[in-house]
Write a protein that binds this DNA or RNA. Sequence first.
DNA 1: GCCAATAAAGGTTAATTAAGGTTAATGCTG
DNA 2: CAGCATTAACCTTAATTAACCTTTATTGGC
Lengths: 230, 230
Amino acid sequence: MKTKVLYIEDEPFLGRIVSETLQQQGFDLRLVADGAMVMKTLRSFHPDICVLDIMLPNVDGYTLCREIRAQNPGLPVIFLTARSETSDLVKGFEAGGTDYIKKPFSMEELIVRINNQLLLLSSLKKPLPDKDQQLGRYRLSVSRYELISPTTTHKLSAREMEILLLLTSGNNRVIERRDLLLQVWGDDSFFNSRTLDVYVRKLRSLFAEDPDIELVTLKGKGYLFLVKST
Amino acid sequence: MKTKVLYIEDEPFLGRIVSETLQQQGFDLRLVADGAMVMKTLRSFHPDICVLDIMLPNVDGYTLCREIRAQNPGLPVIFLTARSETSDLVKGFEAGGTDYIKKPFSMEELIVRINNQLLLLSSLKKPLPDKDQQLGRYRLSVSRYELISPTTTHKLSAREMEILLLLTSGNNRVIERRDLLLQVWGDDSFFNSRTLDVYVRKLRSLFAEDPDIELVTLKGKGYLFLVKST
DNA sequence: GCCAATAAAGGTTAATTAAGGTTAATGCTG
DNA sequence: CAGCATTAACCTTAATTAACCTTTATTGGC
């Protein structure tokens, strides 16, 4: 699937040039000129990265960046700006930006930096563990596809294991439902299927005997695998 | 423990200036001027990040970067260089660099970019700390989505938590209604919806049993989450 | 300056819609 | 046909909308 870039730029000429170049490079690009539309687009478009002009009418870029990061902490945001003073750059990073490019910039630099951010991010996404791990009173043996509770041992299927690992990989962070569906089935058409819910139910029933483990639903967002430590 | 920076620079004057500034900033800095020493230092010093000049005698920076990354794939490498052509920047990223700063640069920029790289790296690694907060007689467990009163525990939905956090984030400061709407729904079209009011009502009823907590309406402005401390 | 009349902002409650949960039945694929 | 994966049908609850009510501002005539 194409990498989705959300590009926020109010200046029409620059906006068009950059958009077209990035599209030629194979990015799935969405250009937004109005700051007020950004948060809405974020929810519907689900970009992999944001490129953000600082000087926008109405909203300023720093505030916008803060809002984006609050909503979606893992999303890289590259500032693209005419302001070349160091103080602006500092403000950009303070607002949660993950990179900062000064105008005039070459398209090549933008492309390289976008790819770099994506690479940094993907390398951080740790591969799913293949070792055993402790979950509350349970022990999960990844290699043997078993969930071992104090009283019984339960065999897991490949799908069950995959979903459980994704849920636990977040370290008490919310795993978006959408991400789960994409990672496990990699398909939009699954988005109205109830299959995932069936697995969630299975997992919940498996962990039922440990009150310290909870798989919380966050409606409209995703799931949170909670291990309540004492 | 201090953050360890391995700084590779052959030019003595620049090397000293930068080293001293970074040390003042609280970094544990190791300056290496000879490319041949880098890999050895890497093994003994175990830096958290590398800052690397491209133009070195004997070895070139790109090759060195490749070797560093091969040895230690998770280690961020910032290029610091006089070469300002895009082709050099591209080569830098291709060699595995994670950021690229052109000379002349301000020390502030270097510091910010170092911190940014470290932040990017650490952001997904650590589990989020349990950011609980005390609100009057209630305890709010953010990670568990619970509001714990002396008598009961109430589960909060994702929206309820989001709004409550925004309201309490201001430390007895006014949160503007339009900011709330923008942050939570990010859309102008919501500005005449009554949804927010419904949530405000829910929150008020949740805190009803504590007379020291008040969610004040400031008509035309916003809300004020008041905790009357003793 | 006082005080209705009116508008605007926000509150309340119930109904609606959409996201997700539950079970059981059906489809696959080795 | 055995065992997992998926779909279907129906249920539950969170999120939103709608309809109507209350309170606070604003304004224009006296």
